[in-house]
Structures are given as C-alpha cells and as structure tokens.
C-alpha cells in the first residue's frame, strides 16, 4: 500500500518549487498535488515548464548539468530532494515513459527483465511470469507472446512504446510519468496507448505531458495549464475544457494564444 502524504492525502505533491537551468528560471513558485489513481495532464505552450516539472518528480533533472531546485517534492511523506534520498530508489517507484520509444537493443524478454534483474529479482520462472504480467498490462502480450526472444527493435513504433510502458511497469512503480508518449505515433497506436492509460489508472497514478490538447481532454481527470514557468490553472479536466476559471487558460485552450 502506498503511503499518501499526510498534509493533503495526495500521492505526490510539489511545494514552493523554483527550478533553474543555470541562471535562467524555468519554474516559479509551483505548488501542486497529484491524486492517487488519477490521470493528470500537464499542458501549455513549448517552454512553459511542463516537461521540466515532470522530470522534477523523479529527479530526472539531476542528470542535467547546471540545474538547481528550490522547494520540496513530497512522495510517501518524504521530501525526495532530501540529501539522504537515493534518486535511483525514487526512479524505481516513479517510472517514466519518453516521447520517442527507446527500447534497449535486446530481445523483448530482456527489455522487460533488465530493470528487475539489476535490482536483483528472482528466478527464471518468476521473471517469465513478470514478463507476461507486464506485457499483458501494457496490452502487448497477444502481439508478442510467440516472439519474446526477437529483438525489440523489430517492433513497430506503437508496439515499441507499449514495450517501454511494460518495461516501466515491470519495476512495479507507484507513479508513471509520461512525456508526450504518443507524439511519435500514428492515430491507431495513439488510441491504443490512450486506452491503456485509462486501464492503468486502476493500479497506478499517471502524470502525462502532452501537446495534444484533445489527448489531455480524452485521457485525464485533472489538467494543469502552465505558462512561462508558472502553474496558471489546475482544475478538473472537464471544467478546463468547458469553462475554465481564467481567461488565459481559455485563450490557450481555444487556440487564441499570443
């Protein structure tokens, strides 16, 4: 059972966060809580800080030189930016799926077990069960069950992306971060991923960055609109797309920006 943050019952929450790439400030005074088993979409024009925020949630920004974080990010009641917290441990519990599918140049089977094996997971039969479970969760199993030893690079783009989702799920994370997971995919593959997101929220909490506003409208329960590094409006998705509270949000949603 995931421990929720005591102060607001959220699974992960961002408090008074500022973020810098060198001297330039990418995020300003962000306060935002994410509900468990919900899909939250982050939207906004390019450079608004939404992807920066996403990467901040599992300390992926640590890997970029010259970045600096102020503020706190609470997960399981602890600030993940505390000095004694191991970022690898955080990334195990908060998985990530990227814009372009990035399978390892290995077999489908080995792609899935790569992470669990590194963390010292069990026997061959346990691993087989894990592969089956993860691939079924990502609705790829029926398509690949007979070719598990084939290279993952031979799958289609949409299949590769579902494999990457399966690979993230194999680590049994609590939260799945998705950074424009369908922007490189055709509409059918996109529809499959969206269907999958809906399925996965029963067991996971999903936070998704998307440029496709209709996608945000289709898949998410809550939507946060970012502009120039600030969280402008954070509301139920249905509210954001029918009657947002702020004109700035309305202008962006309706394509009246700038």
């Amino acid at each position: 059972m995931v421990k929720l943050n005591e102060h607001d019952g959220s699974i992960i929450s961002v408090q008074d966060v500022n973020f810098y790439y060198g001297a330039s400030k990418a995020l300003t005074d962000i306060n935002m809580s994410f509900k468990k088993n919900q899909v939250t979409a982050l939207i906004g024009p390019s450079g608004c800080g939404k992807s920066t925020l996403l990467r901040l949630l599992n300390r992926m920004n640590d890997l970029i030189d010259g970045t600096r974080v102020e503020g706190r990010v609470y997960f399981e009641g602890k600030n993940i930016y505390d000095p004694h917290v191991d970022p690898v441990d955080i990334r195990r519990k908060i998985g990530m799926v990227f814009q372009k599918p990035n399978p390892f140049p290995k077999s489908i089977f080995n792609n899935i077990i790569y992470g669990p094996t590194l963390s010292g997971a069990g026997s061959r039969s346990d691993l087989s069960a894990l592969v089956e479970k993860s691939l079924k969760q990502s609705v790829l199993w029926d398509e690949v069950k007979d070719i598990l030893n084939q290279s993952a690079m031979r799958l289609s783009g949409g299949q590769q992306q579902r494999l990457c989702i399966a690979r993230a799920l194999a680590m049994n994370p609590d939260i799945l971060l998705m950074d424009e997971p369908t922007s490189a995919l055709d509409p059918i593959s996109t529809a499959k991923i969206e269907e999958l997101i809906d399925e996965l929220k029963k067991d996971y909490t999903i936070i998704i960055v998307t440029h496709n506003m209709q996608q945000a409208a289709r898949v998410s329960d809550e939507t946060g609109f970012f502009y120039l590094g600030k969280l402008i409006e954070y509301n139920q998705t249905a509210k954001i797309f029918t009657k947002p509270d702020l004109k700035q949000t309305e202008d962006y949603i309706t394509g009246r920006f700038g």
């Binding site: 506003m213 209709q214 409208a217 954001i240 797309f241 029918t242 009657k243 947002p244 949000t249 309305e250 949603i253 309706t254």
Partner: peptide, 9 residues
Amino acid sequence: RQPAAKDLR
C-alpha cells in the same frame, strides 16, 4: 475544429 471552452459553449 474540435472546439473547446468558449468555442464549445
């Protein structure tokens, strides 16, 4: 156009 917000209303 898949209108949203004000345009949808």
